[in-house]
Design a protein around this nucleic acid. Structure first.
Lengths: 217, 217
DNA sequence: TTACATTTCAGACAAAAGTATGAGTTACCA
DNA sequence: TGGTAACTCATACTTTTGTCTGAAATGTAA
């Protein structure tokens, strides 16, 4: 059961989404928010799996709301659902931590599909928005939850980390000091957009970044 | 590729195992140890995925070696391979942290099968040894890596933990103080036989203890 | 050859995480 | 009704983690 929170200032939009998602047996709309602030509050109490977030809303816009949500509850996914596909709207959304970006003209089936993909750990960008993203990616590579630019050494560290090892153990395995491991690990967290080693390990497992090794706890 | 270390004081046994495992394309025997002490040392340098460990060996027996290995490298699995199926031999092995216990009369195919299962996170006990285990389980439930006695509340905490949350976040989600969360978490670690939250999260994911929720990083 | 990325390491902190121990509460079982 | 398990919380620590800043060595691509 995927628990969905809808955040949109237009009543019609919320109605439409709810009606449609109700036809999906494994979806449950746990709440509705009329603006970004309400969205953050409801996320806190309801702890949904995913938030369908409108970009433009009163009180607090979708970007701000997404930032707050992702910083407090990094595991809760946000799918930006809006009607703008230009650079100025897409990029901030992705940078804020949204796992996906879809235009509101999306087909219902496609929407459900997108949500499922996100829950599986994939990132979804509407084709129209992708092109504008591609350009930016060249200039600014700091969007690692889209593209993963871990260096070889960082991948080594992450692999060890994903075996449940401590910094000291990783250092010993890779024949470097604990300081070095800490440096790598900090960089990994930034690139993966996670806050700590547990999230990094879960991310690696979920996204199958653990190609090298096969053991686990 | 599953990297195997063989620890047995009988040369013939080692030969036999090696020859057989060589026929398996995804197995690699990375080393052989003639006693427990050597096994521990080789584990340190070779970092295998799994150790096939004889119970009775000179220098250091399989139980001791397993204890040391599991305490230092909890992610490395140990399959006890021996010829005793009585209580006094089986229980210490399991308590030492062995993921499996098989008699030496095991069919080669069955052995490979067991190893694969262990790598998948399952625990393997030879039928003959299972019955003696069953009895003991009633008396002594402190064998959590076999049977998981997490209380409901501990399961709640573990579920939150497996979303990548910090203690503070878990506390807020479950409406208790951080102190309480720490208590639960310490207990969980003991029961799961892991050292920290990352290992616990990986354990939960691997062993599918995350029934309740579906989200991740 | 300059510029940049990668890898290594250090010092100094701040912030979490974990452990140990004790204790009060409820709830249920024998 | 006494014992026990589960849940809660606290105090007092120790140990790890993680961040920031700075820096040196290496290799490589423009």
């Amino acid at each position: 059961m995927i628990r969905v929170l809808i955040a949109d200032d237009h009543h019609v939009v919320r109605r439409g989404l709810i009606v449609f998602l109700k036809t999906q047996k494994d979806f449950e709309v746990v709440g509705e928010a009329k603006n970004g602030l309400e969205a953050v509050e409801l996320v806190e109490t309801l702890q949904p799996d995913i938030v369908l977030m409108d970009l433009v809303m009163p009180e607090m816009d979708g970007i701000q709301a997404t930032k707050r949500i992702k910083s407090k509850w990094p595991t809760i996914e946000v799918l930006m659902l809006t009607s703008f596909s230009d650079k100025d709207h897409v990029l901030p959304a992705i940078e804020a931590g949204a796992a996906g970006y879809q235009l509101k003209d999306i087909e219902p089936d496609e929407l459900v599909n997108s949500i499922r993909k996100i829950m599986r750990g994939e990132n979804i960008i509407h084709p129209a928005a992708t092109t504008t993203l591609q350009e930016k990616i060249q200039e600014d590579k700091n969007l690692p939850h889209i593209q993963n630019p871990l260096t070889p050494r960082e991948q080594d560290v992450l692999a060890e980390l994903t075996k449940g090892k401590s910094n000291r153990e990783i250092a010993s395995s890779l024949f470097v000091t604990e300081k070095t491991v800490k440096t790598h690990i900090s960089n990994i967290f930034n690139k993966l957009n996670v806050q700590d080693r547990t999230q990094a390990a879960l991310y690696a497992v979920k996204h199958n970044l653990t190609e090298g090794s096969e053991s686990g706890v």
